[in-house]
Amino acid sequence: MLTSLLWFAGVAALINVTPGLDTMLVLRTSVAHGRTGGRAAALGILTGCLAWGAATAVGLTALLTASRLAFDTLRIGGAIYLAWLGVSALWTSRRRFAGKTAEDGEGAADGGADAVVAAVAEDGSTDGSPRRGRRAAFRAGVATNLLNPKAGIFYMSLIPQFIPHGASVFGSTLLLTAVDVAELALWYWVVSHAASALGERVRRPSFRRRMEQLSGVAFLGFAANLLLAERA
């Protein structure tokens, strides 16, 4: 089992660090809302991964390949949600930064306001706004992961290949899921810290606007890709 575990850890690590939808969500949230926002989004994604792993352990993910209706329902729902995220990001970039300029003075003022918000989020203030932002980021992470049938198919198709003959399918699946989630947690920790540090250093409204625009286009691209996806 140890050999299979090590092989799985290596393969999963390569897949996890490949840029994708979940990483994009953590990146965008960390730049826009700081480390706490990025961590909340990552926690939501990890919760979704645990759910997919548990579903794989009991055989529920097989429905995604056995049932065209189940796959298409999840696929279309996920695409609609991603399209909504993309349009929201583009709308935010247009509304939030409308009329702003990239002048140093104005950028500094905007940066000061962002710094206050980040400080409040970091020190665990009792103000409702940061908490609402973290809850929204968590929900976005859960929804993005669970509404993506490719995530379920990933667990269903990859994990069984690393379960040794004669080993408990249920226990081995949960163990391999735990390894994958631990690796993802480490990866998202690195991404959220790097992205939030970049967001703190680059406080120009133009940078934030471009980041929102890039995120919006990326989410719309992921939505289109999901719409065109076929069952494995």
Rank of each mutant, 00 (worst) to 15 (best):
A118K: 10
G38N: 06
G107M: 03
F71L: 00
Q213V: 14
A41V: 09
A55Q: 01
A51L: 12
T144V: 03
L50H: 09
D104K: 11
N145C: 14
A108H: 12
S88L: 08
S196A: 11
R134Y: 08
A51W: 03
A83M: 06
G107T: 15
A118F: 10
V31K: 10
L176R: 01
L176E: 00
L147C: 06
A223D: 03
L50C: 15
L198I: 14
H193V: 15
D123F: 13
R132S: 11
A137L: 09
S206M: 04
A137E: 02
T92I: 05
A13G: 02
I76C: 09
E230R: 14
T23L: 10
G20D: 04
W52E: 04
A223G: 07
A12I: 14
P149H: 00
R210E: 06
W187H: 14
D22C: 05
S129A: 15
V179E: 05
G53E: 09
T56V: 01
R95Y: 05
G141K: 03
G20A: 13
T177L: 01
G59C: 09
A42F: 03
R28V: 13
T65N: 00
L227H: 06
F138R: 02
W189F: 12
C49T: 12
M1K: 00
G37K: 09
V11G: 10
E183S: 13
N225R: 13
A54H: 02
V117C: 10
I163L: 06
D22W: 04
I159Y: 01
G48K: 05
G48P: 00
R201Y: 11
L5H: 03
A83L: 12
H193Y: 09
A113R: 11
W187L: 14
L43Q: 07
